[in-house]
Write a protein that binds this DNA or RNA. Structure first.
Lengths: 381, 381
DNA sequence: CTGTTAGCGCTTTCAA
DNA sequence: TTGAAAGCGCTAACAG
């Protein structure tokens, strides 16, 4: 393992001054091609990597990206379906998103600084640390369902921030998420095309649920099916809330023949409720979820659902963040941020909407054929 | 949100010199109590946090801990038990360990730099980056089953390293793990006390499996049960290998009445094999696993197993690492590491063995009573 | 006990 | 196009 090298060493080896090496490293255009070549060869040959602290301190960019995300481990919440417990965690989407982030970041020279949060912990403390330690050159935020008022502070201070699939945050912060409206619209349209006309909906929380609800409404409208308020229940994204809402729906004088749940956990609750009542899924009740958490393919009946491209979301967020970092021209001294023209703010914020996939499995009655549980019958965009 | 402060600012506000502030921050004893008090108050009042890069560059410790761990997301490997798919990931222990780490680190001023690795990726590259960027003041390593020859390099360079539950690494590196021998010994002893005498064992991989095997052998010996080589199979820690090994064991002329699997995944494979053969667990076959992954409590029958205190392992590892960091007296310039007396190396390395719990659930035939699946009948150390 | 001083390795003026 | 020099915020020698 080679010992630590400095620019000094490289300069001596290449027969140039330190500043020239620095120029090459920072891709300045004003270096003679031959010189650049020579320096690059020496750097390559000796595997030189600049000292992060010195770089940052001297006004350069650090090569560290921060990630604020819920704790990677979560308690299992068991629910009985068909006599067997189905454990599903609180935020099953997080590991997938994280995977996308680490995959994308692994191909760059950036390191990942993880700010793991639990429910209780105050984000403010983390934001302060980010500001004070000056370690990051960009920040990714994964806080499903939670808005953080402090993020705006960071963004205003000139730190590039990208929010992944978060709700209710300021429009001005770059964002990567999915088109909830369209995903829901297509799911319900599919049910209608299958011949279902009495379609219940269990709403979830946050802004995304409003969008999904709109998709549900518009699909019904397009299918000339009047909206029946009795068929709409309000859940909270948990399995048990899905089960309770389904119980109410199924107890109606005219119960629905299909239920579109606002997420997969609630759809699992619907399956559990159906089972308790002895209803066959999909023959007597079609069920569609949203998210396509890894577990959904392994349920029996396997769950038809709207797939969020979670890994891709993480990757796209990294790409977006890196592009922001490289284009950004904030003042060198962050304390001057408040005095600089707000040119960046006036630009149109970048919001990336990824497309969902509609994954048709056993629970929606698309077929009577027996499927291998992890198979997908058909998927449509 | 306050703007970035420097030691300079604090010094001015407290009416002292910069070095005095620095002394207070670094807990030097030679500061007047009144002065220290005054400085601390100003720091407190203004929420001052030192710049990491400057601190590190000036020869101080960074407040960053690195963590090398497998990717937080893993593919589900579904297996059929009782007609229902049971998805279990490759390394279900990782999130729990990570939780212990983040919990413990969250109470300190240290940040967590995550080096996420997948199977393919070369550790060498990460080690080089750690060495070159000089970002870390300590490193935690979670690589279940994999030894990394490069870790020794880091350790020798003076970077405090703690390995969590890893196998086959140099004795000289501090380590936190469990007493595999004792866990296995107690599990098998329990089976013997229950009256089982024909007890099969499915071995796993790595050094821990050897230790577990020894525990199995010694428990049999203590119970005056001769070791029957026919009852010992070699698996690879996967569900499917557990199933295959169980199939071989159950096809013996004299099949075992109990099987102790080297980990929970293989125990799940045993349950699957028993089901295929129509064997009732625990009445016709007792099954015991090792690890107590979160899923095991939710199986039906729920799995009797040896619990690893995973969260505690992460916490203890952090504590150990921080103590190493604070006691450590490595030369300021890492390139001098090779020239310094190897005093630290001659010390006895710290190896922390945590105790396991034996968790008795349905699969071991401890009782015929019907249990709520997540309940534990009884646990013994 | 406390202030002054000299760098840590890098980036960025400013001259040449 | 390149080198010399200043300084980022901090720590740790050194004097006082």
């Amino acid at each position: 393992m080679p010992r630590k090298l400095t620019i000094q060493d490289i300069a001596r080896l290449a027969g140039v001054s330190r500043s020239t090496v620095s120029r090459v490293l920072n891709k300045k255009p004003d270096v003679d091609d031959a010189t650049r070549e020579r320096v690059l060869r020496v750097i390559e040959e000796h595997g030189f990597i600049p000292d992060q602290s010195a770089t940052r301190l001297a006004g350069g960019r650090s090569k560290i990206i921060g990630v604020i995300a819920p704790s990677v481990s979560w308690p299992l919440i068991p629910t009985t379906i068909q006599g067997v417990l189905v454990p599903v965690g609180h935020w099953p989407t997080i590991p997938e998103i994280m995977r996308g982030i680490t995959d994308a970041l692994g191909k760059t020279p950036y390191e990942l600084l993880l700010y793991s949060i639990d429910q209780q912990r105050d984000h403010r403390e983390i934001i302060q640390r980010i500001l004070a330690t000056q370690l990051l050159s960009g920040l990714l935020v994964v806080l499903p369902g939670q808005a953080s008022p402090y993020l705006l502070t960071l963004h205003e201070q000139g730190l590039p921030v990208v929010i992944i699939d978060d709700q209710g945050n300021p429009e001005s912060i770059p964002w990567v998420g999915i088109n909830n409206y369209q995903g829901a619209y297509r799911a319900v349209r599919h049910l209608i095309r299958q011949g279902y006309r009495r379609i219940g909906h269990i709403r979830g929380l946050y802004a995304c649920s409003e969008e999904r609800y709109q998709g549900y409404c518009d699909a019904l409208h397009e299918g000339n099916i009047p909206l029946d308020p009795a068929l709409i229940e309000q859940g909270d994204f948990t399995v048990s809330s899905g089960q309770e809402c389904a119980n109410r729906l199924l107890a109606l004088p005219e119960p629905p023949s299909a239920i579109f749940a606002g997420n997969d956990q609630m759809a699992i609750g619907v399956l559990a409720a159906a089972e308790v009542r002895g209803l066959q899924v999909p023959d007597e009740l079609a069920v569609v979820g949203f998210d396509d958490i890894p577990f959904s393919a392994h349920l029996r009946p396997s769950l038809t659902t709207v797939r969020q491209p979670l890994v891709e979301m993480g990757q796209k967020a990294v790409e977006l963040l890196l592009s922001l970092i490289h284009q950004e021209v904030r003042p060198l001294d962050p304390r001057l941020a408040q005095f600089t023209p707000s040119a960046p703010q006036t630009e149109r914020p970048t919001r990336i909407y990824l497309e969902t996939d509609f994954i048709i499995r056993e629970s929606c009655g698309a077929t009577a054929a027996r499927l291998a549980p992890s198979d997908t019958l058909h998927s449509e965009r």
